[in-house]
Nucleic acid binder design. Structure first.
Length: 265
DNA sequence: GCTAAATGTTGAT
DNA sequence: TCAACCTTTAGCT
């Protein structure tokens, strides 16, 4: 599930559960045992999301860095916690709740300098109120790299993943193959606003829904897949607006989806 | 039951 | 450009 909206939602969900709370921390799987021991019996002081990264601060100065990667997942609930099963990287338990983390790419203690180094590599995050779309624009407009690749580059834009890339380009009527330098400023400004709106709704709902109501209504009962996307994983199916077959191709090491008619080269 | 793919990143070639 | 990594699940048999 993890694009930026998932990470920001986790931060919102975890704050009331963890911040100010004394926690018991363990790594039943053992891979984070040493780090867990250092966090155990401490108090969580802050939770900070940025792009697809999450940092948890503890009293005593420890800093936990989590990146879910492709498969990472948090699950939790009210005590009592279930018996640990399988590869359970991290378990955090408060007086009331338990929280389990499985399959993350990163679950490590880091120094403030290491955190700054990660942040320095990230472009603006549409989910942060202070984010400046112009920083991304400066990168986009100076390269012939295709826009479909730029949107996935976390140093251009933080938090956008494969679903938002495909869907936002479709909504903009922009070919993924258009060189960054040939994207005009108005198109970029509109895409940024569209990203902000849809990623925010993603945080609220926990799902990525990019289809407009009109398109969903028109196709009610006829959609062959869930109707929350225009192109993502809809290759071979007819475009919801024009009927052209949705195409797919690997770009930036991921499957890209687009409508050749609505997004002409 | 098995296999491939998945909303991601890194490091080697 | 490609393989590796971490884990779950959809879609087969």
């Amino acid at each position: 599930m993890p694009e930026g909206h998932t990470i920001h939602r986790l931060a919102k969900d975890h704050r009331p559960l963890l911040v100010g709370k004394h926690v018991r921390v363990s790594s039943p799987q053992g891979r984070f045992a040493a780090g867990a021991a250092l966090l155990d019996d401490h108090v969580v002081t802050r939770i900070e999301p940025y792009g697809k990264h999450l940092w948890y601060r503890f009293d005593g100065g420890q800093l936990l860095h989590i990146h879910l990667g492709l498969y990472g997942k948090f699950v939790g609930g009210a005590l009592p916690a279930p018996e640990p099963r399988g590869a359970l990287r991290l378990r955090i338990v408060t007086d009331d709740n338990w929280l389990d983390l499985r399959g993350p790419t990163h679950c490590d203690l880091v120094t403030p300098a290491e955190r700054r180094a990660v942040l320095a590599r990230l472009g603006p995050d549409p989910l942060r109120p202070t984010a400046d779309p112009n920083e991304a624009w400066q990168r986009i407009t100076r390269t012939k790299t295709p826009i479909g690749q730029l949107l996935m580059d976390q140093s251009v834009l933080a938090g956008v993943g494969n679903v938002y890339r495909a869907e936002i380009l479709y909504r903009a009527g922009l070919s993924p193959f258009r060189p960054g330098r040939d994207v005009d400023r108005n198109a970029w400004d509109a895409m940024w606003l569209d990203l902000v709106a849809h990623m925010k709704s993603g945080v609220r709902t926990g799902r990525i829904v990019t289809t407009d109501r009109a398109d969903r209504d028109r196709q009610r009962g006829t959609a062959t897949r869930e109707d929350s996307h225009y192109v993502y994983r809809r290759d071979g199916l007819p475009c919801r607006r024009c009927g052209t077959e949705i195409r797919t191709e690997v770009m930036a090491a991921r499957n890209l989806f687009w409508c050749p008619t609505c997004q002409p080269a």
